[in-house]
């Protein structure tokens, strides 16, 4: 069990931490998961594995403050973003500390040009236009989107490029924490490789990163692997069937 030491009030050591997180849907008897403890250091990639329906996406929503700030649900325990409980923050306050990229590129991109997409967040935070211009250039460079894609419609880009745009639009808010919710599931081999390398680079820059996965092939970027199983978040152990990469073996039990 991981305990957040009381000394870490500022969240400097662990930008993202969960304490005794329990969640149940309204009208459901059994909690989806309970007693989840997690601490993520700066520069670290923690991967959470689990089968479909195990509650991974809901856990993502709790870790990113979407629950309870945007979506309702019975959540007990706390999520600390840079040392502050998400219950005491507003959504924009969370968004400037923590960025989340979702699985489906089409429901997280809304503008007809890449640059507009990236500028949306900083505009909401009232960043002066000249500074936004620099931010757009910087994050496009970070994610490796070539300058000539700037005026293109994200809707017409490849799946991998769309996810890069989604990531760039989140990075423009300069979050210290990044959460990736199965972002590679719709990408081909090349797209996956690019995103994996990028996630490692971002951790190298000191971001605290959580990736959520069902595909064992995407585990190589993780410093630590946790498994969400039967409502508990446990350490991955050698020989755990989810991570074998051998689909047949999982089915046999």
């Amino acid at each position: 069990m991981e305990q957040v030491p009381d000394g870490d009030k500022t969240g400097l050591d662990y930008p993202l931490a969960a304490r005794g997180l329990t969640f149940s849907f309204p009208d459901a008897g059994e909690p989806l998961f309970s007693g989840v403890d997690l601490r993520v250091r700066s520069g670290e990639v923690v991967t959470i594995m689990g089968l479909s329906g195990s509650g991974k996406t809901t856990l993502c929503h709790c870790l990113s403050g979407i629950i309870p700030l945007i979506r309702p649900g019975q959540m007990s325990g706390d999520v600390l973003v840079e040392g502050v409980s998400t219950r005491q923050l507003t959504v924009p306050e969370v968004a400037s500390r923590l960025g989340i990229v979702f699985q489906d590129p089409d429901t997280q991109l809304f503008f007809p040009a890449v640059e507009d997409e990236i500028a949306f967040g900083p505009e909401n935070l009232c960043v002066p236009p000249a500074e936004i211009e620099l931010t757009v250039q910087r994050v496009m460079h970070t994610v490796g989107l070539p300058e000539e894609l700037r005026h293109r419609n994200p809707h017409h880009l490849s799946g991998g490029q769309k996810q890069l745009v989604a990531l760039a639009s989140v990075l423009s808010l300069q979050p210290q924490i990044l959460i990736f919710d199965e972002v590679m599931s719709q990408l081909d081999a090349d797209g996956k490789k690019r995103i994996r390398r990028l996630i490692r680079e971002l951790a190298g820059e000191g971001k605290a990163v959580v990736t959520v996965e069902h595909d064992p092939d995407n585990l190589d970027i993780a410093d630590r692997v946790k498994v969400l199983h039967d409502g508990q978040l446990v350490d991955y152990q050698a020989g755990w069937p989810y991570c074998e990469g051998d689909a047949g073996r999982v089915c046999r039990d």
């Binding site: 689990g50 089968l51 479909s52 699985q103 199965e182 599931s185 719709q186 069902h214 595909d215 064992p216 989810y242 689909a247 047949g248 999982v250 089915c251």
Partner: peptide, 14 residues
């Protein structure tokens, strides 16, 4: 297989 985990993939395969 989009969005199917290893277990569901194996079931579909069968």
């Amino acid at each position: 297989t989009t969005a199917l985990d290893v277990k569901r993939k194996a079931e579909l395969s069968k």
